[in-house]
Design a protein around this nucleic acid. Structure first.
Lengths: 135, 135
DNA sequence: TTGTCTGTAATAAAAATAATTACAGAATGA
DNA sequence: TCATTCTGTAATTATTTTTATTACAGACAA
């Protein structure tokens, strides 16, 4: 399991906290305690999804590109998701086995369904709701 | 992401298909296309949770220890789960940062909630339901 | 009592993840 | 203009996680 979801959410929470002020990747990396390059990569992804925007050059950094009430955590999850969450789906079962031959399609159905339930749950909360928990 | 959930479900499906007949770890490994030692490790875990039982020695192997209608997929998930599914929760954010200092507790709440939604969804289906999809 | 299984530990290999290094280019402002 | 401080990104290395392999003791059936 990689750490992309919590890292992205941490970034977004910090940007929300900055209230529109530009925040450098070094500052973000310092709070999260990871490498700044990884932060910039994650920001590149968040930017791709329209959650944040960045300013290059001296005094540059990132900031929220939409209101925190318009970013829900299900969308954030979808932005960082790669594999299916319940299995890597890179298994190659034996095609000669009647079960092995069919299992991938049935796993796929299961994964999709379960993951939708997860996303629905996350979608109930916006970044604003999440940020509100911090005192 | 590891493959424990699909491997366990694959094992259980094969055992269900065997209708009480004992199945060797070599046969299971052949269908899943992984190493037999890994299968035996996974079976040791499934046994710990009372889903299967095994017979040692010549002609030995594993079999379901309860009816497939009494094994739901949420329980299977819980049996193989280790980390939280949305993050490894091994991050050590900066305690000097007001956000970093508090984020782990808030992530934990989020994870627990979202994971419960996932488990609830999986629990709607038993092993028998799942096995029925195979023709 | 031999052959075929499981159980399990120890090690090695492979794959995934994260950190680091390096550097081009943008923007600021002295 | 030019030094400085940022971002963006590629390439490499290090670390961690996952899987495979090897090895062998013990169970049990024939």
């Amino acid at each position: 399991m990689n750490n992309r979801f919590p890292v992205s959410l941490h970034i977004l929470t910090l940007l929300d906290d900055a209230k529109g002020e530009v925040v450098s990747s070094d500052y973000l990396a310092g709070s999260i305690n990871i490498n700044p390059v990884l932060v910039r990569k994650e920001i590149a992804n968040l930017r791709k999804y329209g959650f944040v925007d960045s300013k290059e050059g001296k005094g540059g950094g990132s900031f929220l590109a939409k209101n925190a009430t318009e970013i829900n955590l299900g969308e954030v999850y979808k932005a960082v998701k790669s594999d299916y969450i319940l299995g890597q789906n890179k298994n190659e079962p034996n095609p000669k086995c009647p079960i092995g031959r069919q299992i991938n399609e049935h796993l796929l159905g299961l994964y999709t369904d379960a993951e939708n339930a997860l996303i629905d749950n996350l979608s109930k909360q916006t970044l604003a709701d999440f940020a509100l928990k911090f005192k």
